[in-house]
Every structure is written in C-alpha cells, then in structure tokens.
C-alpha cells in the first residue's frame, strides 16, 4: 500500500464541489504562487509551524523534547528554532501542551485515509457530496492519489480533483476514469506573467485543460483573482476566448484573493506581499465579462 503525505483534512467542506464534502489536502505543488492561501501545502516535505500566541511563557517542554537541540528560548525573542539543526522529526510538537508548535504534513496510507473519508459517508449520501482532493497539487502524489481514488470508486463515493493543471497529461489519464469532476485552476493567460508569478509557463496547463475537456471530463474552471496580477479585463477576455474553443466547461468560479492565509505565512516564518483584496465592484465587473459570453459564473467555490 502506498503512503501519502497530507497536511489537512477538512470536514463539512461546502465550497469544494457539490454537496457536503471532505477535502483532503495533499502536500506538494510544482507552482509557488505568492498569493497561495495554503502556503504550507507547497513544499513536499514537512514543515514546522509555530504560533507564538499559543506559546506558554514558563513552558520549556519542546526544548527538552528536541533530540537535535534545535530549540532555544530567549526572554525577548521567545522561542527560536534553528532550521539547520531541525530534522522535522516532531518530538517538539508532540510535547507542546498548547499546539503552539505543530508539524505540517503527516504520513498516512490509503486505508487509513479511507477510514477518515468514510466517517462522513452519511453526509455525502444525503447531500450528494463526496471527497475532494486538493493541496498543494494532488497529482504530485499520483500513485497515492490513484490508490485512494480507486478505493473511493469501489464504494461509489463521488470524487473531485482540485488541480493547478501542471502535470504530465498521462497522469491525468490515469485518474480520469475515477474523477467525477475536476476543479481546474487557471491563473492567467499571459505566459510571461505566468512564469513571473508562479515560476512556470502556462502552456502545459492550457494544453492539459483542452485535452481533459476533449476527453469528456466534467470541469469547473476556477479563476483566482489577484490584484494587479490577473484582474485586468484583458486577461478575462483572453480567458473567455480560450475557453470558448473547448467544450464542456460547465461553470466558472471566480475566487477573489483574501488575506486569510497571511497568518500562515507568519507561522511558517515566510514572507508574503501585503495585498488588499479586490473591490466588490471590480469582481462584479469581471463576472459580467464571463456572463456576457454565456458562462455560468459564481463568486466563491
């Protein structure tokens, strides 16, 4: 059996596909979009999360627990973690009484994950919901994903794959027959900008989308709206022009940038840009463009 690494499992997910769902977040993503609201999902390795607000002043349990002496405490700066010494083996998080320290990402095998997924089967059955695989990019852990999806299909559980589109098409082909719906992210049409902002060209993403659609897959397109990155009318029009050439885009979800992920960057001790979310008017304006061209559009998932 394959073991995967997931960083979250959200129950009662109601914006990741139809009905009441459980969303499984698989770790690792080829893209590194600076606006990502799940930055802890980008790396394929584990991460150490530290939330200073929860840290108890008098407590030194993590310092004692760490076998690599990676943690020290300083009266002014609080807890200091030496990233060179830290092996991410997790004793500190285990010893932490308040969950101020936690390890992001844990190994789980397909059977264990199925057990978690099946816990909410009654809710899927009543709401026509199911399980959504997200991340990170779920296709990064193809073998694990494939095995879990196989098990889902065996029990006739509805499956959704939320993908950034950047993977060999053969990988998509392996899971297509087990995927009831793709939530397909499209960041922007301009290739240069795409490279600038995500680290990769968008050619493969566009190509895969075309192929997926032509193979008869059900697809909802998800378009993040990032201020000053892809919020132009031009980008919207280009997106329309592109998707009009391919069949079967059932719906478009516009996902306006929100700053909910900011705290996560801090806890990961990573930097992010300060960005103000788009105004409602701007979002509506963009929505109009898609509506005008005959697409069914929704703001939010």
């Amino acid at each position: 059996m394959t073991t995967g690494i997931i960083f979250d499992l959200k129950k009662f997910a109601i914006h990741d596909g139809p009905g009441i769902r459980t969303t499984v977040f698989l770790k690792g993503c080829p893209l590194h979009c600076w606006w990502c609201h799940n930055p802890e999902g980008q790396s394929s390795n584990k991460d150490l999360f530290f939330n200073p607000e929860k840290c108890l002043e008098m407590c030194t349990d993590c310092i004692t627990a760490c076998p690599n002496q990676a943690i020290t405490k300083n009266n002014d700066a609080g807890l200091l973690i030496d990233k060179n010494k830290c092996q991410l083996e997790g004793s500190c998080a285990e010893s932490c009484p308040t969950q101020a320290l936690s390890i992001i990402g844990h190994e789980i095998n397909a059977d264990e994950l199925m057990k978690e997924i099946l816990k909410d089967k009654t809710f899927y059955d009543h709401s026509k919901g199911g399980v959504t695989f997200s991340g990170g990019e779920p296709l990064v852990q193809l073998k694990f994903l494939n095995e879990v999806m196989q098990k889902c299909k065996h029990q006739n559980i509805h499956t959704v794959v939320d993908t950034c589109g950047l993977a060999p098409f053969e990988d998509f082909e392996k899971i297509m027959d087990k995927t009831d719906l793709f939530l397909y992210d499209l960041k922007m049409m301009d290739e240069k900008k795409h490279i600038q902002n995500t680290g990769y060209s968008n050619r493969k993403v566009l190509d895969n989308l075309k192929k997926l659609a032509k193979s008869g897959n059900r697809i909802y397109l998800r378009l993040p709206l990032i201020p000053d990155v892809n919020d132009s009318r031009e980008n919207a029009q280009k997106t329309v022009d592109f998707i009009q050439t391919i069949p079967g885009i059932e719906r478009i979800h516009l996902l306006p940038f929100h700053s909910a992920g900011t705290q996560k960057y801090q806890n990961l001790k990573r930097k992010t840009k300060d960005t103000t979310p788009l105004s409602e008017e701007r979002v509506k304006e963009l929505k109009e463009i898609y509506l005008k061209n005959g697409f069914s559009v929704k703001i939010g998932g």
Binding site: F12, I14, G19, I20, T122, F123, D125, H126, S127, G129
Partner: peptide, 16 residues
C-alpha cells in the same frame, strides 16, 4: 448554498 447544505446536514443527523 449554505442553507441547502444545512438542510442536508440536519437530515443526515436525523438519519442517524
């Protein structure tokens, strides 16, 4: 949308 899902949430609880 949330309301629809609340309906199903409650129905699920009652089915148990």
């Amino acid at each position: 949308q949330g309301m629809d899902k609340l309906v199903k949430l409650i129905r699920s609880y009652f089915s148990m």
